[in-house]
Simulated scan of single mutants.
Amino acid sequence: MRQTKRYKVDQANSLWQIYQTVSFWKVMKNFIFIQLGRYMPFLSVKNWLYRTFLRMKVGKQTAFALMVMPDTMFPEKITVGSNCVIGYNTTILAHEYLISEYRIGAVVIGNDVMIGANTTILPGVKIGDGAVISSATLVNRDVPPGAFVGGNPMQVIYTKEEMDKRMDDDS
């Protein structure tokens, strides 16, 4: 179950009321630094931009590939551990605007996590240490540590124990 906080709206859909929920200037600043980061070829500079200007928590030697899209409204709710690879064109959302409500939830990605290209991570999700997310996965719930998951909707392909056994068999 995703951990999000829900906020009801009574007039038009929640996205129509966006600047009542988050400052226009914050969104503009975040957008500029996210766009710089999306094209930045230097991983250490990209991580510095995200830590400094977006207030994301990013561990050492984490690599955000080209075109990764962190949440524009609430990037400070994203935590990524050390030694992770976030694949090309992955989207990490900490918010979702719906018709009658909007939801905000922290995204926590553990250490040594591999996230394949074109993955979407929804708000309120925790991805455990050592997890592997297949390309083009919709991460719509928590991922156990060490698991290999994939698909839309996401399914566990191998548990940590099954992955460990596969690694032992390959040795």
Results as ranks from 00 to 15, higher is better:
Cys84Asp: 01
Val27Trp: 02
Pro75Trp: 10
Ile127Ser: 14
Val58Phe: 00
Gly128Thr: 10
Ala131Tyr: 06
Tyr39Lys: 07
Ile157Asp: 06
Lys46Phe: 06
Met40Glu: 15
Met167Trp: 04
Gly150His: 04
Lys57Tyr: 00
Val132Cys: 12
Gly151Thr: 06
Lys26Arg: 04
Thr119Ala: 06
Thr120Asp: 11
Thr4Leu: 05
Lys8Asn: 05
Asp10Pro: 09
Tyr39Met: 14
Thr72Arg: 11
Trp16Thr: 14
Gln17Gly: 01
Gln61Leu: 06
Ile99Cys: 06
Glu101Val: 02
Lys77His: 06
Leu54Asn: 08
Met154Ile: 01
Leu43Glu: 13
Val80Met: 07
Asp129Ala: 13
Thr159Glu: 02
Asn47Asp: 05
Leu43Val: 09
Arg55Asn: 08
Gly150Met: 07
Ser44Pro: 09
Val108Asn: 11
Tyr39Ser: 10
Cys84Ile: 03
Gln20Ile: 00
Thr4His: 04
Phe33Asn: 08
Gln3Lys: 12
Thr159Ala: 02
Met167Glu: 14
Gly105Cys: 04
Thr91Asn: 09
Asp169Phe: 07
Arg38Met: 08
Leu122Ile: 10
Leu15Pro: 00
Ser100Ile: 02
Thr159Tyr: 04
Lys26His: 10
Ile92Asn: 05
Leu54Gly: 02
Ala136Met: 08
Asp71Thr: 06
Phe24Gly: 00
Glu101Arg: 09
Lys26Asn: 06
Lys5Gly: 09
Ala106Tyr: 10
Trp48Cys: 07
Gln17Trp: 03
Pro153Glu: 09
Arg51Ile: 03
Val108Ser: 07
Ile133Asp: 02
